[in-house]
Amino acid sequence: MPKRLHFTRRLNVAMSEDAYRTLRRFSEEAGLSQDEALCFLFEHFGSVTDDEALPHRLRLFKAELPDRKR
């Protein structure tokens, strides 16, 4: 029997416009609500990320943060 999808946690999330557009596009293409899409991504984080590319992408993102916050 599949686990019941019950949203027990509410999260007020701030994200960039690019990230929001990507989330919206992903949820529409997948036929999910944005809540369901985020739930899917975080529940399956290990299998939807590339283990080799993730550390590199994270380093790049962190290096760009000071400039992006201006």
Rank of each mutant, 00 (worst) to 15 (best):
A63Q: 14
Q34E: 13
L23N: 06
A63T: 10
A19I: 02
H56R: 15
A30Q: 13
L32M: 11
R59M: 09
F7M: 12
R25Q: 09
R9I: 05
D67W: 06
L41W: 05
S16F: 01
D67S: 13
R24W: 06
A14F: 13
R4L: 15
E36Q: 13
D50R: 11
E17F: 06
P55F: 06
K3G: 14
T49K: 04
A63F: 03
D50Q: 02
Y20V: 08
L54I: 06
R57V: 07
P66H: 01
R9F: 08
L60M: 08
R68F: 12
F26I: 01
Q34F: 01
K62A: 08
K69N: 07
H6F: 07
L54H: 05
R9V: 11
K62Y: 07
C39Y: 14
L23Y: 04
L38D: 01
G31A: 04
K62P: 03
D35A: 09
A19W: 03
A30M: 15
F45A: 12
R70T: 12
K62F: 04
T8F: 05
F42L: 15
H44V: 07
A53G: 07
D18M: 13
R25I: 06
D18E: 11
T49H: 03
A63D: 13
H6N: 11
L38C: 06
D50V: 00
R59D: 06
L41F: 05
E52T: 04
A37R: 05
S27I: 00
P2H: 09
R21Q: 14
H56V: 15
D51H: 12
A30E: 14
H56C: 07
E64G: 10
F40W: 09
P2A: 10
L41Q: 02
G46W: 13
A19Y: 01
A30F: 02
S16D: 07
L58R: 07
P55Y: 04
L38Y: 02
L38Q: 11
H44L: 08
D35W: 05
R24D: 13
D18S: 11
G31Y: 05
R57E: 12
K69H: 11
D51I: 00
T22C: 06
H44N: 14
D35Y: 01
S47N: 08
E28D: 11
R4P: 09
A37C: 14
L32D: 04
T49F: 01
E36F: 00
A30R: 13
R9A: 13
L41S: 04
V48N: 08
E29K: 00
E29Y: 03
K3E: 15
L32N: 04
R4H: 14
V48K: 06
L38W: 02
L23G: 03
F61P: 02
M1Q: 14
C39W: 12
A37D: 05
T49C: 04
M15F: 00
Q34K: 06
T22L: 12
H44G: 00
S27D: 01
K69L: 15
P66R: 01
E43L: 12
T22A: 10
E29S: 10
T22Q: 13
A14H: 14
L11Y: 09
S27Y: 01
L58F: 13
R9H: 11
M1S: 11
E36I: 03
F7V: 12
Y20H: 10
